[in-house]
Simulated assay, not measured.
Amino acid sequence: MQYKNLGRSGLKVSQLSYGAWVSFGNQLDVKEAKSLLQCCRDHGVNFFDNAEVYANGRAEEIMGQAIRELGWKRSDLVISTKIFWGGAGPNDKGLSRKHIIEGTKASLKRLDMDYVDLIYCHRPDSSTPIEETVRAMNYVIDKGWAFYWGTSEWSAQQITEACSIAQRLDLIAPVVEQPEYNLLSRHKVESEYLPLYSNYGIGLTTWSPLASGVLTGKYNKGTIPSDSRFALDNYKNLASRSLVEDVLKKVNGLKPIADELGVTLPQLAIAWCAANPNVSSVITGATKEYQVEENMKAITVIPMLTPSVMEKIEAIVQSKPKRPEAYR
């Protein structure tokens, strides 16, 4: 496993990480979570991602209990959570000072930890001034409840505003953004965020490298396996939007490239994300140990992605966004 700095910060995160979205609390209990987490650690993963909204908080409880029972040394781990959707009440969601502080304390209680290494603002909040959010995140860091903070699915303009406010007030700016990034979803990472990397040292921990499983090829026959994410009631809408003919044709087109390299489609797709120099860590998901084993082998695929292989991949997916004139 390789370890990369999280943006311009000194924090080192494993190039591949593991996220609890969908799986913990919806598909897996503590016992199963323990075996998956241990499998990740055996492959050198040190970064584990969560959020207050995952399984309505149950994902944090499962991760916290699993880590406690595994007896891991806390300083060996990088644990993150995300704040935005904390409940049904008017102040249980968003990025107000009230919810950030109360939500963070509630997350730590569920995780049974004194601190998380990294805390994200899970979405932008148009109803709260960004200055209020920046000040609240700094309060969380000052209290020792988190060491770093970041954003998830914010626009480049919003991140720039947060960094500018932090600079003006001599506060800590966000160090990381967590966007969706895969062969089918590239605009933010490869176009919109370009100025953020050099201007503010923003790193990326990207999610959905397999496009919710579409890039594994398991949906190519037009059927949805009963144990897959798209079989869950909450994700049936996503399935109908994702499993379109054009997308499945591209996935089929990538198969020969993977075969030529002697790797699987998921390994190719994950390695492709990790090969982007602006990506600090690719967050993987899995519900079974063999999936973790397979995903982790993507590390060995990264050196195989020569310029000619990347060109072949591009010729199939044809998803490269146009770079803004100013950044060419």
Rank of each mutant, 00 (worst) to 15 (best):
G203Q: 08
S164A: 15
C39D: 13
W21N: 10
P324G: 03
E260P: 00
M1V: 13
N234T: 11
E245V: 11
Q38P: 11
I79Q: 06
I202E: 07
H122T: 07
S240V: 09
P307V: 03
T205H: 03
L254T: 03
E161L: 13
N138S: 00
Y120W: 13
C163R: 11
W154L: 03
I130E: 04
V214P: 06
V78T: 07
K31E: 15
V189F: 00
M113E: 09
S164W: 12
T133Q: 08
K31L: 08
P124T: 08
V279A: 01
D49L: 02
V247E: 08
L215F: 01
N252S: 15
A211E: 14
E260G: 09
A55D: 09
G94R: 10
M63P: 00
V279M: 03
K188F: 13
F47R: 04
N26R: 12
V176W: 01
C121L: 14
V134A: 04
P209D: 04
A106R: 11
I83M: 12
A59K: 04
V176G: 07
P174W: 01
Q267R: 06
L70T: 01
A33L: 08
P90E: 13
A275Q: 14
A55F: 10
P179D: 02
Y200Q: 00
V30Q: 09
P209Y: 02
D227T: 13
V116M: 03
K109E: 13
Q15L: 08
K297N: 08
R229M: 08
L28H: 06
L238R: 12
K82H: 00
E102G: 04
W149F: 12
Y115V: 12
H43S: 13
P266L: 10
P225D: 08
D42N: 15
L183W: 07
V214S: 06
D246L: 04
V13I: 12
S152F: 02
G25R: 05
V134F: 04
G87V: 05
E32S: 15
N252M: 11
R97H: 13
W154M: 06
Q15G: 05
F47Y: 14
N182G: 02
T151N: 01
A106Q: 10
Y327S: 13
H99T: 07
R8M: 10
